[in-house]
Structure formats: structure tokens, C-alpha cells
Computed example of a mutant assay.
Amino acid sequence: MELQQVFKIGIGGPVGSGKTALIEALVPVLVERGHSPGVITNDIYTQEDAEHVRRTLAGTLDGERVTGVETGSCPHTAVRDDPTMNLAAAAEMLDRFPDIDVLLFESGGDNLTLTFSPVLADVFVFVLDTAEGEKMPRKRGPGTTDSDLLVINKIDIAPYVRTDLTIMERDARRVRGEGRVILTDCLAGTGIADVADFVLAQRETVCSPVG
């Protein structure tokens, strides 16, 4: 399988927003729908996220289909400015598992300016969470305003962190115009089917038919 034939999803967002949790919730849905995913995580110095994904998805996804890239620098460099390391990791994974038809790239946690190189991601999903505060969408930034999909995660804890979810969602939709916003609780699975519906719909328009 050539990389250009594989549908590539970039998932970014601030530290702790729930990027890893979103991947761990999304992969079983992709598998259930007949897809063969692979996961590439980015951390500055460790393999922690990759190891967490392997443990959580044990029994659903072969652990060798999850790999971690240690960027050694700002996550922007590895997923936006110079994605060489991620492209090499993807090529190696596809050599080993040519049946993979969806690759999920998780950026290292960073700020609102993070985006993905179009070489690396066909669809860019940006994750905010309610614990960061309802003001976050109003801060804008290309991750919030220009991503293909904005996910507002951890909706279950909004009342406990003094976040008015109605205001946060309203402001997110306001700054994004027609851009899609989906509310999720990744641990409970709320909204995950909607995320899967969205990204797979994008696959039909941006990716060459497989097979």
C-alpha cells in the first residue's frame, strides 16, 4: 500500500485535551466498520502515548500497529514544518502491514497554533476540552478555527470545572463559521460515532479508492 492511498487523520490539541483518548475511542469504531487502522503518536522525549494506546487497545488492535515518534523538539516541527520522521514511521508501518487503510497521527500536546502538514494529514481534527475553560474557542488560533473538525471533549466534567458548555459550544461555532464542531466524552463514547461519521465521509472525497 502506498502512503498516498491511505487515509491520514491528524489529531492535535493542547496537553491533556484528550487526543489519546479520542484515538483509543475511535479505533474500535473504525475496526467495527471494516477498516484496518494504524496509529503513530508524537512525544518529545518518550513513547508514553504509544504505550498507553497499545495497552488500551490490546485485543482490538495489534500492538505493532502502534508506533511512537520521539520528536526531540516542538511538536509543530514534526507534524507541520518537517514531517520527515512521521513519514518514515508511516512508510515502515505500511511495509509491515500493507493492509492498513487508515493512519491516525497524534501530535505531541501543544498550543492553539498547531496544525498538520497536508503531506501528513488528509483531515485535521483539533481537540479542546472543557477543563481548559469556556474561553478557549474565543482565543481562536488556526487549530480552533481552521481544522476540518473541532472536538470539544470532556463534556461530562464541564459543571465541575465551572465551564458553561452552552457558551463554549456557541463561541466555537461562531469562530468556525460553517466548520463542524462535535462534543464528546471519549471515556463514555459520547459523540465518537459522530466523529467517525465525519472523518470517514471526508475519506470519500480526499483519498483514492483502496483496492
Results as ranks from 00 to 15, higher is better:
residue 116 F to A: 01
residue 55 R to I: 13
residue 82 D to F: 07
residue 49 D to C: 09
residue 37 P to F: 09
residue 22 L to E: 06
residue 193 A to Q: 08
residue 44 I to Y: 02
residue 67 T to L: 04
residue 9 I to C: 10
residue 12 G to V: 05
residue 155 I to R: 09
residue 145 T to E: 06
residue 96 R to Q: 11
residue 164 D to I: 01
residue 50 A to M: 07
residue 145 T to W: 01
residue 168 M to F: 05
residue 20 T to E: 13
residue 109 G to Y: 03
residue 153 N to K: 03
residue 155 I to K: 05
residue 176 R to I: 04
residue 12 G to T: 14
residue 99 D to L: 07
residue 44 I to P: 02
residue 167 I to C: 01
residue 55 R to S: 12
residue 5 Q to D: 14
residue 113 T to G: 13
residue 131 A to R: 06
residue 196 A to T: 03
residue 8 K to T: 01
residue 148 D to I: 09
residue 115 T to E: 14
residue 65 R to G: 05
residue 54 R to N: 08
residue 195 V to G: 06
residue 119 V to N: 05
residue 102 V to G: 11
residue 74 C to E: 10
residue 205 T to I: 08
residue 65 R to Y: 04
residue 77 T to V: 14
residue 188 A to M: 08
residue 68 G to K: 13
residue 148 D to R: 08
residue 95 D to N: 15
residue 177 G to E: 09
residue 6 V to L: 09
residue 166 T to N: 13
residue 182 I to Y: 08
residue 170 R to F: 03
residue 47 Q to V: 08
residue 144 T to I: 15
residue 22 L to V: 11
residue 38 G to Q: 10
residue 39 V to Q: 07
residue 52 H to I: 15
residue 98 P to G: 11
residue 58 A to L: 09
residue 109 G to E: 12
residue 210 V to Q: 05
residue 55 R to T: 15
residue 167 I to W: 03
residue 65 R to C: 04
residue 107 S to D: 10
residue 17 S to W: 00
residue 145 T to H: 03
residue 13 G to T: 02
residue 134 E to F: 02
residue 210 V to H: 12
residue 88 A to Q: 12
residue 101 D to Y: 05
residue 206 V to T: 12
residue 105 F to Y: 14
residue 189 G to L: 01
residue 126 F to E: 10
residue 199 V to S: 07
residue 175 V to M: 08
residue 59 G to I: 08
residue 33 R to K: 10
residue 44 I to N: 04
residue 32 E to W: 02
residue 24 E to C: 13
residue 196 A to R: 02
residue 89 A to D: 11
residue 76 H to M: 15
residue 209 P to R: 14
residue 181 V to R: 07
residue 85 M to N: 10
residue 92 E to C: 00
residue 5 Q to W: 07
residue 201 A to P: 15
residue 52 H to W: 11
residue 132 E to W: 00
residue 78 A to G: 10
residue 36 S to Q: 14
residue 79 V to R: 04
residue 144 T to N: 12
residue 51 E to W: 07
residue 203 R to E: 08
residue 81 D to G: 02
residue 134 E to S: 10
residue 77 T to Q: 13
residue 11 I to G: 02
residue 116 F to W: 01
residue 91 A to V: 06
residue 183 L to N: 03
residue 138 R to S: 13
residue 128 L to W: 03
residue 101 D to F: 09
residue 175 V to N: 10
residue 74 C to N: 12
